[in-house]
């Protein structure tokens, strides 16, 4: 790998990913930082390539971060989006349900997102690990670590249709789905909310090179007032890049262990997970 350019990995969960990284690439070039991006169809391959040194940085899901750290303990979370901080997930029931809290869900059927969704499956199931719930998974976009919202939407629809007794999803999607009328506003009731956790980060497998550092400094300098980057930031769902932190992944770590998603060295051990 040459010293003065960056090879970045990203997962193509949506066609807009090309627009976003192509736009960033065009913005970085005149700032003397040639960037190449490599698109993966799922996160596992991206993590393996990052650890193997085939890419310099990876735009990682939280679950991909957890795996990277297990495979490369010196990995660093370099930058994040302002919108990656302090997310929560919720467990919702129908408004007329007799369920009052998580304990009431014992023995009941709970809809979750895709097998590898941190926000709609792993973290909420971690929250309910002491309760013997029955689980129905909505495996949309397996391998995308929950980036595809289809699983959460299907879970909520199944709840509205009376097929399940509860559904798990991220706070922002509950607001979006009730606002858009996927389910009627007020037709669901929130019975549990997870503590805040963090989402994606830009990961390096080890101490970042000076070029990677400069790349991160440029990202951090992107200004929402700049009309060239603003549409890209809007597309990627942030207002500002912020320095990475790793304090917000403990819940996911525990859930991954409890549910046996990855082994201690990052081996994929999840049952029925085929990205």
């Amino acid at each position: 790998m040459t010293a003065d350019r960056i090879r970045l990995g990203a997962v193509a969960y949506d066609p807009k990913v090309v627009t976003i990284w192509d736009g960033f690439r065009r913005w970085l070039r005149p700032r003397d930082l040639p960037m190449d991006y490599v698109l993966y169809s799922h996160y596992e391959h991206q993590v393996e390539d990052l650890v193997a040194g085939r890419i310099d940085v990876a735009w990682n899901s939280p679950l991909a971060w957890v795996r990277t750290q297990r495979m490369a303990p010196g990995a660093e979370a370099l930058v994040m989006r302002d919108t990656d901080l302090d997310l929560t997930s919720v467990v919702v029931v129908r408004a007329d349900s007799e369920v009052r809290d998580v304990a009431d869900l014992a023995g009941r059927l709970v809809a979750v997102g895709a097998v590898d969704s941190p926000q709609a499956t792993l973290i909420p199931l971690g929250l309910m690990s002491d309760v013997a719930v029955r689980v129905r998974r909505f495996d949309v976009g397996v391998g995308l670590h929950g980036d595809h919202i289809g699983g959460e939407r299907d879970a909520l629809r199944a709840l509205a249709a009376g097929e399940v007794e509860a559904a798990c999803l991220i706070d922002a999607n509950h607001l979006a789905f009730t606002t858009q009328g996927v389910v009627a506003a007020g037709s669901t009731r929130i019975v549990a909310q997870t503590p805040p956790y963090d989402h994606c980060n830009m990961t390096a497998a080890g101490p970042p090179s000076p070029t990677v550092r400069r790349f991160c400094d440029l990202l951090l300098a992107m200004d929402y007032a700049d009309p060239q980057v603003r549409p890209l930031l809007d597309l990627e769902g942030l207002r500002q890049w912020v320095p990475g932190r790793i304090s917000g992944y403990a819940q996911l770590e525990r859930a991954v262990d409890r549910l046996g998603f990855y082994g201690p060295g990052g081996e994929v051990t999840a049952d029925g997970y085929q990205p």
Binding site: D82, L85, I170, H174, L175, T178, I190, Q193, Y224, Q240
Partner: peptide
Amino acid sequence: DPALPVHLRAWARRRGHRFVD
């Protein structure tokens, strides 16, 4: 609205405001 604490957090995050825990 019982969902207000959840929705306010999500809304503030998306609009670039800060929600205080």
